[in-house]
Amino acid sequence: MGTAIQRSTVADLPSLLPLLRGYSTFYRTPARDEDLLRMAEAFCGDSPDGLQLLARTEDGTLVGYATVLWSWDTTSGTRLAVMEDLFVTEAVRGEGVGRALLEACASTARERGCTALAWETAPDNDVAQRLYDATGAERSTWLGYRLALG
C-alpha cells in the first residue's frame, strides 16, 4: 500500500479526531474531544513542543498518526525526540503504515539534530512491540511513572 506521510495542519483536525479518539479508546482513557483537538492543534505548524505526522493512503484517507515531542536527554546532554503516540487504524495494521510513521519520526528527529528517538508502549501491546522489536531499537529497562496533578 502506498502511504504518504506529512505534517498535520489545522485543516486535518476534523479527520484526525477519530484517530485520536481511537488511540484514547485503545488505552482506555477518557479524553474529551475538545482536549484532543486542542492538543492536536498545538502541534500544527512550527510548534516548539513537537509535531504530528499523518499517514494517508493514495486516495487521501487518513489511516495513522504519530506525535513527536522535542526534549533533551540529560544522560548525554543531547537533543532527544520522544514519540508520544503511534496509532494506525485497525483496517491497515500490518501493511507497513506503522513502520513508515516510525521511520518518518526518526528522519524528522535526525533533521532536528536529535541523537535518539525514544518511546514507550503498554506491556500488553504485543502488536506494537513486534513492530518496535523489528526496528533494531533497544528495549529500555527503565520503568515509567505518572503523577496526576489535577
Rank of each mutant, 00 (worst) to 15 (best):
Y145R: 12
D73H: 05
D33V: 09
A118H: 03
L13V: 15
P14F: 11
T115N: 09
R112Q: 14
G22P: 10
M39F: 04
R38F: 02
L54R: 13
V127D: 14
A148L: 14
T74C: 06
T29S: 05
D85Y: 14
E58N: 09
F87V: 02
E120Y: 05
D85V: 13
R28F: 13
A91E: 03
A11F: 08
W142F: 13
A11N: 07
A116G: 09
R32L: 14
T121I: 07
V68R: 06
V88I: 00
T108Q: 06
E58L: 12
V82I: 10
T121L: 08
Y27H: 10
T121E: 04
L51I: 07
M1W: 00
F26N: 03
L86H: 09
W72A: 15
V97S: 01
T78H: 13
V82Q: 04
W70M: 14
S47V: 12
D133N: 02
R38S: 12
V127T: 12
T9V: 04
T141I: 12
A106E: 02
A40Y: 07
A118I: 04
A55I: 12
T75H: 15
G136Y: 12
D46T: 11
V88C: 01
L62T: 02
P48G: 12
A109E: 06
R32C: 12
A118D: 01
T9E: 05
D73I: 03
Q129G: 02
S15C: 13
C114H: 04
N125M: 08
L101Q: 01
V68K: 01
D73L: 11
L36Q: 01
E103I: 02
V63S: 02
G64P: 06
V92C: 01
W142M: 07
V68D: 03
D133H: 06
R93N: 04
D33S: 10
F43Y: 15
V97A: 11
L117P: 04
L117T: 03
R7G: 01
